[in-house]
């Protein structure tokens, strides 16, 4: 039986390595989110305003990248480029692989957001003499933002947790750091619980913050539901 003091000591000694892993995890998450938001927005526009071939492409893209397991995606992105003569680092493969997936989901979230602001709002704004840009900035954007937050918070949590899959590519993210430590220590449970705690704080903490933001922005009487 390992004493509590020994456990705490172990966590203390491992903290630098764990924090290093956490930094990598956060980097992955941020880059993947940026990737997904950027391309997801483009795809969403393409699907709502684009010509038929573009709409078709986005539909097919989404179907494919929501049906393939994340792990498989990561492995494909890692092993694919070498045959093109391109070497891709595990880190970049992770960002690209999970980014491609994030794009598919973010695109759907954006589409739902676009739909949620009723066209009568836009009509009213134009009638008041607001031009296209003012309408977008002061009428559409504020409302859309509120609708956007809950599914975005959800997607953030998923991406954060999925970064643990980068383990399979050898990326030195949090989970892999944990494995390295365990290889020399003899108390895997303590380390894993510490890792779980870090993940929990990162998901729970941020989604809580986003919820506070959501509540602050809440318009009384309007329920927000994206199907």
């Amino acid at each position: 039986m390992i004493l509590l003091e020994a456990r705490i000591e172990l966590i203390r000694r491992s903290l630098p390595a764990l924090l290093g892993g956490t930094v990598i995890t956060i980097q992955l998450t941020v880059l993947i989110l940026l990737f997904g938001v950027f391309f997801g927005l483009i795809f969403a526009f393409g699907q709502v305003y684009g010509i038929k071939p573009i709409r078709w492409f986005v539909n097919v893209y989404e179907k494919i990248f929501r049906s393939i397991p994340e792990l498989v995606l990561l492995l494909l992105v890692f092993y694919g480029p070498p045959s093109l003569g391109i070497r891709i680092s595990p880190f970049n493969a992770a960002v690209l692989g999970l980014g491609l997936r994030a794009t598919a989901y973010m695109s759907q979230i954006f589409r739902g957001t676009f739909k949620s602001v009723g066209s009568d709002q836009i009509t009213a704004a134009y009638s008041l003499g607001m031009g296209k840009y003012k309408t977008f900035l002061f009428v559409i954007l504020p409302q859309a933002f509120r609708v956007f937050i809950p599914p975005f918070a959800n997607e953030y949590a998923i991406i954060l947790k999925d970064t643990s899959l980068a383990y399979a590519l050898g990326v030195a993210e949090l989970l892999r750091q944990g494995q390295y430590i365990i290889a020399v220590a003899y108390d895997p449970l303590t380390i894993f619980l510490a890792i779980a705690a870090i993940y929990f704080v990162l998901t729970f903490g941020v989604t809580r913050l986003l919820k506070v933001l959501e509540n602050k922005l809440k318009i009384p009487g309007i329920g927000v539901e994206i199907g």
Partner: peptide, 23 residues
């Protein structure tokens, strides 16, 4: 519910596979 949903599935598998044997 909150703990399981707030941590990666892989971490949960690792706990079961790598941490329990010590016990």
């Amino acid at each position: 519910i909150e703990l399981i949903r707030g941590t990666p599935m892989l971490a949960q598998l690792f706990i079961l596979y790598f941490a329990l044997p010590a016990y």
